[in-house]
């Protein structure tokens, strides 16, 4: 007999999301993706493949890019999560502006994940070559295929941040 969770199956998890401490009660199998969207109330992180193939749910976990669909809520106790909403708390970032300037945003559904991945890429490699951008972003699918536009956006942001690549 399959069962669904009763309240005593819920575990309380306290984590920091975009700088604020949040406490949620979730069943153990709940992914961080669903937790962020449904429990924390931050739907900017998107769900597509739900198995780590598309990158739409990319967030920063303790500063490192991860697929939120492959993280359990219960394991992020005490840890720090940054979502796309957290990147743009003070208005659009230079990176987000460059996404717009480059024409990288079409339907927009993959874009939050793209932005988080690109931000992580630039933090870990401030002067990426085009090849490094393609490699670093290759876990983020865009069916509108704005790939070349996104590469341009990342390059322009690198230049704005003083990185740039010859």
């Amino acid at each position: 007999m399959t069962s669904t969770h009763a309240d005593d199956d819920l575990q309380t998890v306290t984590l920091t999301v975009n700088g604020s401490e949040r406490t949620v009660a979730v069943p153990p199998h709940r992914t961080l993706l669903d937790g962020l969207r449904d429990e924390v109330g931050l739907p900017g992180t998107k769900s597509c493949c739900a198995e780590g193939e598309c990158g739409a749910c990319t967030v920063l976990l303790d500063g490192r890019a991860v697929n939120a669909c492959l993280v359990l809520c219960v394991e992020v106790e005490g840890r720090d999560v940054t979502t796309v909403e957290g990147l743009s708390r003070n208005g659009l970032t230079d990176l987000q502006e460059e996404f717009l300037n480059a024409g990288a945003v079409q339907c927009g559904f993959c874009i939050p994940g793209q932005v988080v991945s690109a931000e992580y890429l630039l933090r870990t490699n401030p002067s990426p070559s085009e090849e490094q951008i393609r490699e670093g972003m290759s876990g983020n699918l865009c069916r509108c295929a704005g790939y070349q536009r996104i590469v341009r956006a990342v390059q322009a942001t690198a230049v704005r941040r003083g990185g740039g690549h010859d």
């Binding site: 739907p43 996404f99 717009l100 024409g103």
Partner: peptide, 21 residues
């Protein structure tokens, strides 16, 4: 002109509401 996308800001910040949101 290459006018920037209407609603583009919300699409990059995560504010754009899709059905599941």
């Amino acid at each position: 002109r290459p006018v920037l996308r209407y609603g583009g800001g919300d699409r990059t910040s995560g504010a754009q509401k899709f059905l599941a949101d």
